[in-house]
């Protein structure tokens, strides 16, 4: 008798809930556009927010609703953009090409002076609150790795010398690190560019920069005179090279006394 009662009880409850579930599944069915899920699967899924939406799922929803452009996914680059266009039945959109993060500072621990010894929360933003950071250069990398923590793709690591290193294979150019850096040392640049680049962020006068750092750009304009392409300009005591004009001849590197002009990172653009 017990056996029968128990079976009826559990079976009955199971049947009741099963029936309810089946009924509710139809009664409360939510119609979803299947394209949302397809696009969501196409996206990288890092939820980096570079597109301007709350995450990949939210971006996919807005694409299908027609409220978002098709080429907003920076990490996905051209491939993802083309795939989305295909799903949406649109002609492919000319996207801006792949981007990559670059660290505009070569002031390693050995060559840049510290104003004071910092012992506190291991975070660049926190360190900035104490007298604007412990490094004598007020523009250079603090090297506490806030960008490394922020990177959703594990594309940054902190090097031995106290500067973050970008893994070009993994970097998608989403720009999360550039936003996280309180000093704006990281810039998002065109991955396809070539030639030379001035890896310095210091807009201090030459004397101030040279007191703080052995390798910072002092704005001496020696490179400007040396460049046959006239690709270099100095603004706010900081030289910058126009990658459109630069042909990578290397004359600027020879005359630079501060050793701050480097080759751009070579990236295989696929």
């Amino acid at each position: 008798m017990d056996f029968v009662l128990a079976t009826v009880m559990i079976g009955g409850l199971g049947l009741l809930f099963g029936g309810l579930l089946a009924y509710f599944a139809q009664r409360f069915a939510v119609e979803e556009d299947p394209r949302v899920e397809i696009i969501c699967d196409l996206l990288p899924g890092a939820n980096c927010g570079a597109c301007g939406f709350a995450g990949c799922a939210s971006y996919a929803e807005n694409v299908v609703k027609g409220e978002a452009a098709l080429d907003c996914c920076i990490p996905g680059g051209k491939n993802v953009c083309n795939n989305i266009c295909e799903v949406m039945g649109a002609d492919s959109v000319a996207s801006g090409g792949n981007k990559i993060a670059e660290v505009y500072c070569v002031g390693t621990n050995e060559v840049t002076r510290n104003k004071f010894y910092y012992h506190g929360v291991n975070d660049c933003k926190a360190a900035m609150m104490y007298g604007g950071g412990f490094k004598a250069c007020q523009y250079g990398c603090l090297g506490l790795g806030t960008c490394v923590e922020a990177c959703p793709f594990d594309a940054l690591r902190m090097g031995e010398n106290g500067l973050p290193v970008v893994d070009v294979e993994r970097c998608t150019g989403c720009g999360v690190c550039a936003k996280a850096c309180p000093r704006g040392v990281i810039k998002i640049v065109d991955a396809a560019r070539t030639g030379k680049v001035v890896l310095c962020n210091s807009r201090d006068r030459g004397k101030v920069t040279s007191d703080a750092c052995e390798v910072g750009c002092i704005g001496c304009k020696a490179c400007v005179k040396a460049c046959p392409q006239e690709a270099i300009v100095v603004e706010n005591f900081l030289a910058s090279i126009d990658s459109e004009k630069c042909d990578g001849c290397g004359k600027c590197v020879e005359v630079c006394k501060r050793d701050v002009i480097k080759d751009v990172v070579k990236v295989a653009v696929g």
Binding site: M9, L13, F17, L20, F28
Partner: peptide
């Protein structure tokens, strides 16, 4: 039968609530 009944009831209930919430 408490344990097994409760597991059944809770699982079913949460599913139901999820469906209703999603719609309403």
């Amino acid at each position: 039968l408490r344990t097994i009944t409760f597991i059944l009831v809770i699982a079913g209930l949460v599913q139901l609530v999820e469906m209703v919430l999603k719609k309403t």
